[in-house]
Design a protein around this nucleic acid. Structure first.
Lengths: 192, 192
DNA sequence: GTCTATAATATGATAGAC
DNA sequence: GTCTATCATATTATAGAC
């Protein structure tokens, strides 16, 4: 029954991802991953023979599959730019637990000048976001170059608000950012 | 000779801070700190009896002393808001190596829901930044509430651009952010 | 204040039973 | 596929000579 297995896998990846999100790659030991997953370290090695690096990488793959299924299709869809942004904001609010969670793409980033496989996957996800958000900006009548800049500003605001929210212990920073997002992407003309 | 000792300390803290900035708190071992500092682990323990936590904390204290001496006085000074921002942007460009470096306040942040002494110091530094940047916005004729929002947006853009620059391996993200900063704080009227 | 040597523990990872 | 038991190493930290 491949379906049941798939569901188990999704739950497993979510538990593993939560640990990485809270403690970062180096801060998360196999013992912690084992407890988060509810199976022993040896069982984790059976599922991920290459160890911790593979776990982190597959968590990122799982994240990308989720985005490919639930988030990017909306951004690239044919609804109005306003509706697409509304859906995107709602997704972000869920994904980041209203600003209480950190972002995997920040917490799993490899050290400077040591771009491993995780780093490549993180870059790929960021670039996919840039493309998808720029598509919304273009759909709202924005030239390509400006659309790309707005997409970049959008990712900056998401990541920055999460870092600051965590830093000062105030998730309202993230909530305020979400209210700005539609304006950033669509321009001030589209604001209700 | 307290002066020579002080200079040695500043250099020591800078080397230690560089290691933490590149690898984060958990990713930086005492062996790495020892090599970065050019002294053995035991010598580090002589200087920092409480170990790694104390090292990180004192690196943050050192960072705050630097900001108190070099950055905040400019932001809170009596030069024109435009000049203050120009100086601030130049400082940021130096501090973050044109976007190639990560920020200590992100890399040393403790896990969610475990606010230790480092976390408190990080929050204090962020809040000092918020106050100082808001002061510039107010000096440019901005009401207090709006000034605070602009300061928040400024920190978000700094942190977010560093995370994204690291994530996609493109420090130009940071450079573009720096060109936006004066407009964010002063409003679009002050742009050259 | 720096060093060598070492302890106690945690870590990533493997072997092999069931 | 999960487990217990174990290994080799790295980790934080300490003791004590110089």
């Amino acid at each position: 029954m491949p379906k049941a297995r798939k569901i188990e896998d999704e739950a497993l990846m979510e538990h593993l991802g939560t640990a990485f999100k809270d403690f970062g790659f180096e801060g998360t030991s196999l013992a912690m991953l084992s407890e988060a997953a509810g199976i022993t370290k040896s069982s984790l090695y059976h599922r991920f023979p290459a160890g911790k690096n593979q776990i982190a990488l597959e968590v990122l793959y799982s994240t990308r599959r989720f985005l490919d299924a639930e988030v990017f299709p909306v951004l690239l869809g044919d609804a109005s730019p306003e509706l697409r942004m509304k859906s995107f904001v709602a997704s972000l609010n869920t994904i980041y637990a209203s600003g209480a969670d950190s972002c995997l793409l920040n917490m799993l980033a490899p050290p400077r000048g040591q771009p491993d496989e995780c780093g490549q996957e993180i870059a790929a996800i960021f670039n996919q976001f840039l493309k998808a958000i720029a598509a919304v900006a273009r759909a709202s009548g924005c030239p390509a170059a400006e659309a790309r800049r707005r997409a970049e500003r959008t990712l900056i605001e998401i990541q920055g608000s999460l870092v600051l929210a965590r830093g000062i212990g105030d998730s309202s920073v993230f909530s305020r950012m979400l209210t700005r997002l539609p304006t950033i992407v669509l321009g001030s003309h589209h604001q209700p």
